[in-house]
Nucleic acid binder design. Structure first.
Length: 260
DNA sequence: ATGGTCGCGTAGCGA
């Protein structure tokens, strides 16, 4: 089972790129972030015609997440639990039935948090704490859980060409790293690390300053695995070629393959 | 030091 994550930076502006990539990579489940539309504006017909069931948690103009799945959804959840007043659409979760039992997948668009410090950074840290609480609550079920998405977290120095330059950024600050580590410490492992990911394997290149041309990227799109998922991963890939296409997103897809 | 680029929605924000 191929499970992918991709910050697509507007589903409407990226339908051609999505179609091309689905035909090439043929994932079973795709978690999308920054679809930038309300549910009503999502191109359900076109995506369903490509062979996918669709779960959408949209928002006007900003944010918005979705899950595409060849398998039917057994259960779904939209919105990260823990704060009823949070209006931003950044979390969707679905359960599908794999060959060995249920597989739970989440599409996460973790807040950017800049400028830091400030209220946006406070929101990011609070959101990370809520995510940790929810992620931890899933572990006692002993299911295969794959928490994927744009985490807006650069885990290590090797995940940016310029760790000094990123030092003050909300994706790289000590408080962010502490929250990231606390999330992992609940019992999840990074697919990238488990599959021997190396330095300089980026998932995002800014549109500005020739970041792509100069390979000034960062690694911020991640797959976090419960023990039952970590035991079953067989392959890991970053579809870097997608960044070379026409009108690309500034992120590229990240894919885990599982014997599930 | 500044500007540089996208998408949304049609000014300016968010990234």
């Amino acid at each position: 089972m191929k499970i992918a994550t991709w910050n697509i930076n507007s589903i409407k502006a990226r339908m051609h790129a999505l179609t091309d990539w689905l035909n090439k990579t043929d994932p079973d489940i795709v978690c999308l972030q920054e679809i930038k539309t309300e549910n009503e504006g999502f191109p359900y017909m076109e995506v369903e015609a490509l062979g996918y069931n669709v779960l959408v948690h949209g928002q006007k103009s900003y944010n918005g997440v979705a899950i595409l799945s060849k398998l039917p959804f057994e259960d779904t959840l939209t919105g990260l639990p823990g704060d009823e007043t949070d209006q931003q659409a950044r979390y969707a979760e679905a359960v599908v039935m794999g060959q060995r039992g249920p597989v739970r997948v989440a599409s996460i668009y973790l807040p950017n948090g800049n400028p830091a410090p400030g209220p946006k950074y406070d929101y990011k840290l609070a959101w990370m704490k809520r995510l940790r609480t929810h992620a931890e609550s899933l572990l006692p079920h002993e299911e295969a859980v794959v928490l994927t998405g744009d985490y807006n977290v650069i885990p290590y120095d090797q995940d940016t060409h310029d760790p000094i330059g990123w030092r003050g950024d909300a994706a790289f600050r000590p408080e962010t790293h502490a929250q990231w580590q606390a999330l992992l410490n609940t019992g999840y492992t990074e697919a990238f690390e488990q599959m021997d990911g190396r330095a300089g394997q980026y998932t995002f290149w800014d549109y500005q300053r020739g970041a792509w041309q100069n390979d000034h990227g960062i690694r911020i799109d991640h797959l976090l695995l419960s023990p039952q998922a970590a035991d079953r991963i067989t392959d890991f890939a970053i579809d870097k070629f997608v960044r070379e296409g026409d009108k690309p997103s500034d992120h590229v897809p990240v894919i885990g393959t599982f014997d599930l």
